[in-house]
Nucleic acid binder design. Structure first.
Lengths: 395, 395
DNA sequence: GTCGATAAGTTCAGTCGCCAAACTATTGCG
DNA sequence: CGCAATAGTTTGGCGACTGAACTTATCGAC
């Protein structure tokens, strides 16, 4: 239901506006923020003081600039501010990390853990231990943890936070936040998200694709996961199940898939399909051969570009998104996959003739999902600092 | 760029909130609006007075209710308020209509016009004439025209309002609003949109699908157009080209399409494909045969459900949207198409097992697009009445 | 019929956040 | 040293919402 607005709403909005400006160009002065946001210097001063009191913003020495006039004090997101704690529950490991407000990773850890087909309770106990370690690390650095994000390989229902299905883990209807809170005594917010979606979020905030606010992130791993970013926000659909791309039907008579259909993208352009066609045992082998100029290997990668391009062109036509970011395995295959894919897309996307399509490589490695989870946690603070301050300081 | 907020922002927000509450349940009293929105009675009174002064809201006699206490005055959207003027430029006709704030059609007209492959200028002169007629009609009814919406069969660039491509008209890069304003001396806002997208918008606001805020609207006509509604808003993509579904690749070896690819949805599930497979010359013939229980005709419709289901399941998996609304030709074929399509979708959408998918029939006829255009025009007023009042009354 | 209970709507002082403008502080340059 | 330019603070005022008291209207019971 829509909420009524009052003066507090105004302050909330402007507080976020100011913090966003500072996050966007660190080193800005109060006057600079005022010029950029359209607020007056007086208002900016008040709001910056508030943000600094909550240690979200840090004042640094005076700016360096030529010409006359007093120097402004540089403002930037405080590295001592609240941190985000990211957790990834994967099939074969549990990863954790701490990021500061700027999105910088300040600490991270990975512990191997055979989670496939384990009871959820046992795995979550292990996860809780990893979380406690991370919390200890945060305490040692004397920073508070402002929020926790958990990336899981499955369908997460947005309204409840329930993990509805996780085929690779064999889980159903697990309330990850509640379980985790119960096992750790955690007080901060815990949010859960699909691993591929959170990886896309990491790409948005830390991928370095300057100004790119709309794209589809595709990460080829065992399956094919996708995350859709629209207008600088992760799109996750009515219930949170958005972005499923792996079972896109690209061929009416392809191999049978575990989902029951034929010709799913996953079966035709997934890692296993490429390895199989190239006759390589694993990814390192394939990469070695590609580096050596092996024709068969290159052909196998090019062959994957076709179904991938077919599926992605549909997505691009549907959503009118101007770019695709390739992550996971695809990022490593980028030198061989990028061009064929671009060609495929250019031929199929209706707006391509006058609006070229970006095919970009993800600079983030396999840690994209954890990072996305942690970033999502801090982002709730950065996106609405005033609420965070009001909730965290007064009561 | 994000805008700073001030008191005026608060009023704008709350003004819209109040009007929305009234639009949502006509007959509400000031006290009722207060209870519903969370604002105080005092605030609601002030805002309602403002809205009534601009004749957006009308006071009607006292409410009827049992029990003691003073009766409230019923409030509803004023039918004498500003109207929206909708225009549809189709291949073989130009349609216009006037709708009031409630979305009710108050007047409409269609004039046949062979627009295919005509120079844009000549067609627009004809369109301008139709618009002037509509403006005259509005003047005769003593209502102002608050905005004009134009539906066109092509790709419209959102940032500029330019019609980039209209294959069926043979147009390229036409500035419809400017041309129309020049030919009519119109002062109101003119917005342009893709015909399928606007039809989806009409479905949202006037389709009577109570509370449905997320769906994909598919209208089978000569081509196949789609409109995506997310969270009660039309989604049109980064540049406005979103919702293209006609060239979804559903078969690797289907018939060649004009777009250069093979197996496009349009070729496999479009009206012509169905008619061809049924051996019917036109739609009325097909419908007659279906009514008579003709097996071949029914089989032809069922055959179209497969590719349509394949494409739509991809869309539903990608966007996590819970419902599909069938319009245009598909609405008329609904009794024969609905069930097979539902079955197809239920089998392919990942969340279907625990979240049933709605397959709904559009109650709007071929006039959905004009209506959507007109509705879009009034909606800019209803969505932000305060700005409309400030812009329209003071200067 | 009158009175009390109940609900709708209005009035008014109070609060809060933003704004404009004046003011102080700092720096380079002639 | 004084002036111009820029950063940041102080202050009075304004607009929009709130809460509470007040007025208006209606029913039902005695």
């Amino acid at each position: 239901m829509p909420q009524p607005a009052g003066q507090h709403t105004v302050r909330r909005h402007n507080c976020a506006l100011v913090l966003d400006a500072i996050a966007d160009s660190p080193g800005l002065s109060r006057a600079g923020v005022a010029a950029r946001t359209g607020l007056t210097k007086a208002t900016v001063s008040t709001l910056v003081d508030r943000l600094a009191a909550a240690s979200l913003v840090r004042e640094q020495g005076p700016q360096h600039r030529a010409g006359p006039g007093r120097r402004g004090t540089s403002l930037s997101l405080s590295p001592e501010g609240p941190h985000g704690l990211g957790v990834e529950i994967a099939v074969d490991h549990v990863a954790t990390c701490l990021v500061d407000l700027t999105g910088e990773v300040r600490w991270s850890a990975v512990s191997p853990s055979a989670n496939r087909a384990q009871p959820a309770g046992r795995v979550l106990t292990r996860v809780a231990k990893a979380v406690r370690t991370a919390l200890g690390e945060a305490a040692a650095r004397d920073v508070t943890v402002g929020g926790v994000g958990v990336a899981v390989p499955g369908l997460v229902e947005a309204s409840t936070g329930l993990l509805r299905r996780a085929p690779n883990l064999g889980w159903r209807d697990v309330d990850v936040p509640a379980e985790l809170r119960r096992r750790t005594g955690l007080e901060a917010e815990v949010l859960v998200g699909n691993e591929a979606n959170l990886a896309a979020l990491a790409e948005l905030r830390a991928g370095g694709h300057d100004g790119l606010r709309d794209f589809v992130h595709v990460s080829g791993e065992i399956g094919i996961g996708a995350g859709i970013v629209l207008d600088g926000e992760l799109y996750h659909g009515t219930r949170g199940f958005g972005g499923e791309l792996g079972h896109f039907p690209v061929s009416s008579r392809g191999p049978l898939c575990s989902c029951g259909a034929r010709g799913c993208l996953e079966r035709l352009a997934g890692q296993d399909a490429i390895l199989g066609r190239a006759g390589a045992a694993d990814l390192p082998t394939l990469l070695d051969r590609l580096e050596d100029g092996d024709r068969k290997a290159a052909a196998a990668v090019r062959a994957a570009a076709r179904p991938l391009g077919t599926a992605l062109s549909s997505v691009l036509n549907l959503l009118d998104v101007p770019a695709v970011v390739l992550g996971g395995t695809y990022a490593r295959l980028f030198p061989w996959l990028g061009e064929p894919l671009r060609a495929e897309l250019t031929g199929r996307v209706l707006s391509a003739p006058w609006q070229p399509i970006g095919v970009l490589r993800s600079p983030l490695g396999t840690e994209a999902a954890v990072r996305g989870a942690a970033t999502a946690a801090v982002h709730t603070i950065v996106a609405d600092p005033d609420t965070f301050i009001a909730d965290g300081v007064l009561p």
